[in-house]
Design a protein around this nucleic acid. Structure first.
Lengths: 259, 259
DNA sequence: CAGTGGTCTAGACCACCGG
DNA sequence: CGGTGGTCTAGACCACTGC
């Protein structure tokens, strides 16, 4: 199972791989997120208070608050001084159409509920219209992929995705599992880079014939294109992806917290 | 010594409007933001370190870090362990087409560069398709507005916006300046609510005849619809807006920081 | 009123980066 | 190496909520 869980046993776990030790507050956030998604807190008021969490996990309030801050940013919970922390009802989320994606974690979560099989294409230059839109230089022959993202129980795909990986990441590309959920997740594991920043451009366009037929749409149907650029800590762009979604059947949903 | 400035008498300030006392870290963020925008740190490396800021403003590191966290979220600065804090060059910002909107502050900034004149319409129920899409109840007769958003130097509008304001905010609605940049900004000032959360749904749709002609588009051109719901601190939805953008001429652009 | 989350202090250790 | 920002502790006071 896509083990992201470190959990109880403090076993130092010196996996030789590059996975550095996660801060405690992120581990805690992962545990709490799983608990929420698993349904451990069915009623909105079931979520523990900060002080309870401090004791239960034997960490300081700072650590608890950092974890809860993350879950708040993800829209999983809502907090209010004086009353407490409540899990956000699944009402607004997961309408059949909605895909909440307000941060990278949620991109992963969204990917987890869907399946995709990429096909490796010949490496080459990135299409002109894509380069223009992102307004950054992306020279050289990038490794190209193409896939169709499906959601269980639906006939038609929710996206057709094209992606390009930086020419220097040949080692990682060679090991890519073409049936995994996301490319950048694998590149993070295989390569030495990790995502620090993502930019997105969202547009409504007329789909090309190819795209339309793959999405099961008709001529003239609008298509939502999401162009993503992935940057590492040193601000190097290492992956570009273009996803084409059926306009009427798909909504890109996000929320913004004010601080 | 200086300990903590109790701030002279708490000026009661019972203005019905909400001019509550701002936390120190937000004040600090405001000061630093102004300094950056004023150009006090022309070179990227000029920005002070945390310890310098602690001394200069006589606050703890926690307070400094909260302020810097805010500026980081706004994309104003970038921070790296070991090297320091650098102001983000204005290079990437403000592509002609791009409208970065990853937080409410940026929605406001985007509005600042554009103009809009709203027209008050008759209050009434919210259209069915909108209600369905947001998946929340919005009963009663909401105050309706409609406007066209223009960008200086461009002939065609970048958006047609419809908005609805909660029936209970009649007082605020009565005072609304129909030529201001945003409705929710005014409602915040006039009413007793303030934005705590925004949700957005983005879709590619076929525009109606009305919308298309107002945007200067032709039949069959795709339209990007952004549906926003504004919530206050008590999670009450007090405004809904639907913006229709020309698909090919407009990109919704955002960036996500990974934490 | 007791308990919640929001703000804040004064420490500490660490991983990382530059000179 | 010294200094940076990232993580974390153990306190504290407060504004606000619910009962």
């Amino acid at each position: 199972m896509s083990g992201r869980e470190k959990l109880a046993a403090k076993a130092p776990a010196k996996s030789k791989n590059a996975s550095k030790k996660k801060p405690r507050y992120l581990e805690l956030a992962d545990e709490l997120r799983e608990a929420v998604l698993r349904g451990d807190y069915p009623d909105p008021g079931d979520f523990p208070t900060e002080s309870v969490l401090c004791k239960k996990y034997d960490v300081s309030r700072f650590t608890v608050r950092e974890a809860l801050r993350k879950l708040t940013a993800e829209g999983l919970i809502t907090r209010k001084r004086g009353s407490g922390t409540v899990v956000q009802p699944a009402t607004a989320r997961a309408g059949a159409l909605h895909q909440p994606l307000s941060n990278v974690g949620e991109i992963l979560q969204y990917a987890r509920d869907t399946t995709i099989a990429f096909e490796k294409k010949k490496a080459g230059a990135i299409p002109k219209d894509v380069v223009e839109q992102i307004g950054a230089k992306a020279d050289g022959d990038w490794f190209a992929f193409r896939g169709k993202r499906m959601k269980p129980g639906r006939k038609r795909p929710i996206a057709v995705t094209e992606a390009w990986v930086h020419p220097e990441l040949a080692d990682a590309v060679a090991q890519i599992d073409v049936n995994a959920t996301t490319l950048f997740g694998q590149i993070e594991t295989l390569g030495e880079v990790s995502v620090a920043r993502v930019t997105q451009d969202i547009q409504a366009i007329k789909g090309t014939k190819d795209i339309l037929s793959e999405l099961g749409l008709e001529k003239g149907d609008p298509v939502l294109r999401i162009l993503r650029c992935y940057f590492d800590e040193s601000d190097r762009m290492f992956e570009i992806s273009a996803s084409y979604h059926p306009g009427e059947r798909f909504a890109y949903s996000m929320h913004i917290e004010v601080d």
